[in-house]
Design a binder for these strands. Sequence first.
DNA 1: CTGAAAGCGCTTACAG
DNA 2: CTGAAAGCGCTTACAG
Lengths: 344, 344
Amino acid sequence: MAKKKQVTMSDVAQRAGVSRTTASFVLNDVTTANIPEETRQRVLQAAQELNYMRNVAALTLATGKTMLIALIVRQTSEATSVNIFTGEFIRGVLGVIEPEDYHLVIHAAGPNQLESTYGKLARIRRVDGLLITLPLLDDPEMIELYEEHIPVVLHGTLTGGIIPSVDIDNEQAAYQAVRHLVELGHRRIGHISNAPFSYASSSHRFKGYRRALDEAGIPYQNQLVLEGDFISASGYLPMQKLLDLPQPPTAVFVSSDIIALGAIAAIRERGYRIPEDISMIGFNDYFFSQHLNPPLTTIRVPAFELGRHAAQLILDLIAGKEQENTQILLPTELIVRGSAVKRQ
Amino acid sequence: MAKKKQVTMSDVAQRAGVSRTTASFVLNDVTTANIPEETRQRVLQAAQELNYMRNVAALTLATGKTMLIALIVRQTSEATSVNIFTGEFIRGVLGVIEPEDYHLVIHAAGPNQLESTYGKLARIRRVDGLLITLPLLDDPEMIELYEEHIPVVLHGTLTGGIIPSVDIDNEQAAYQAVRHLVELGHRRIGHISNAPFSYASSSHRFKGYRRALDEAGIPYQNQLVLEGDFISASGYLPMQKLLDLPQPPTAVFVSSDIIALGAIAAIRERGYRIPEDISMIGFNDYFFSQHLNPPLTTIRVPAFELGRHAAQLILDLIAGKEQENTQILLPTELIVRGSAVKRQ
DNA sequence: CTGAAAGCGCTTACAG
DNA sequence: CTGAAAGCGCTTACAG
């Protein structure tokens, strides 16, 4: 394990013929030090010649900054569905933090709170900031960190809205989807949610569904609305129930492509066809959605962009910049494909 | 940003009435120090009462260990397909490293080598070890790190096999799939690869395909074998070509579920049915595969287990343990569903 | 068995 | 404009 001896700042200073202080100033771009250009260049060149790389641990010890941002992923049972989104989100995050010399550490917090404590990660590893996806409705650990003034940004929307967050505009997205169905002539429109309605995303999407109905003057019917629960299987029974109604819906808005898979299976089993008998709109636009038969009309979620915004926000928070808006809501896009057509 | 003042080891030592040295010894379980149990308990208790958490940066500076493992993900064009796998892999990794107080930092290296340099990550951040997924066939940076004795484990198989790695037994997996087809009575079996044959995984799977044919005494036909290229769209044309043959295959082994999506579309477009006209076996068993129509018979890849093994291996390497076997090959499982049936 | 002390590589008042 | 020096929180020979 004989690693090469490390090049330190002293080496650079020595080679440039200046003190460590001066070297530190130029390497850190401390403008108040007013280093003359000539000296600056000398140091920079020495650093380059020596292939100097700053020792982050020393920096951390001296300043308290770790240049680390943690991403806490709350895994749900159907981890895979989360992964597609999270992968894109991470790419977005890395794109903005790495150029600033930050790195990302990942931690998977189990779905039940008892288990893992990311607070420990925050405190032992002393990360500069935390990104939390899929926050629980009521997460004491998160509040605690927030109150300790550790920068936190979450992906999702929490009622109360004190903690900075990025999310899509769930209500508007659902509204778009259902209005599309209305425009296609549908009046009996079912809804299967992405998650229990206790989740913010589900309840917001439900609101959008209602708003579209209201706007079209379509009376709301409770029996047309059913709860999904993350995994594909959870779309199966609700869809059956919808089909069992004396007057089944002619269209259904399933607010998760994953759950749509289960709903599609139920429809197929009963011998109904999509879209001839029933139109369907999903949510997320996962990559497989366009390859279904028929290709699924759905709502595109800008996972990559969400990651970018979350990262930028946390960086600003760490830098102590004043924030005008710490509740970022990104727009979504309706992707029209073959699964929703004019009411026949 | 007024964070709470940190509890240091000195505080613990003081409260326990011992020196920092002694405190360090018991907190680090240095058995050679032969600390009497009574003292040990006193220190441990003080630490607990003070809620002491070691400062990793100080540890790093003193010992060189960062307690950080980096995961380098080489993104391909179709990032999403990678994400499903990677998410599981990461879960596997975290499960073994976090209990050992290691953390995972993620870095996405672009597909072209010119771009990102994870070597920089390794050297600036001074991670203790690197996990590299989707290694390029010939990656000078990786070799460089390996030669600097930085522990590296890769996911995948590289010819030469000097660098420790974990992978599935691609050949055996493909062999399983194709033998299943043979057992179902098929003799004209097409193959669409998961990636260009320059990739180890593709060429190994191809070998398994051939071995199954050979064993069954089925002559190899070059025209039945076509290259896929990661994304779904890349399954479309090859499948069309297969269908255009004077004697189209009665079954096809598509060594990626993602690419199978494209192949299925081509088959459907021509008015053929799966499995009545053509049987199909995929590869990976992504979560959507079971929801296709018909559900896809495929090969399950133990992504989570691969992560666990990779993590254990890197930990052992870091600890300097002697390794008997640094080339780990995990078995796969044939998942029989509805897309492959007896030749009609 | 236990402690004083040096050292890891940086930053940053404080002088000059 | 620039340097000497203290300090960040740990580890680890070295003495005793």
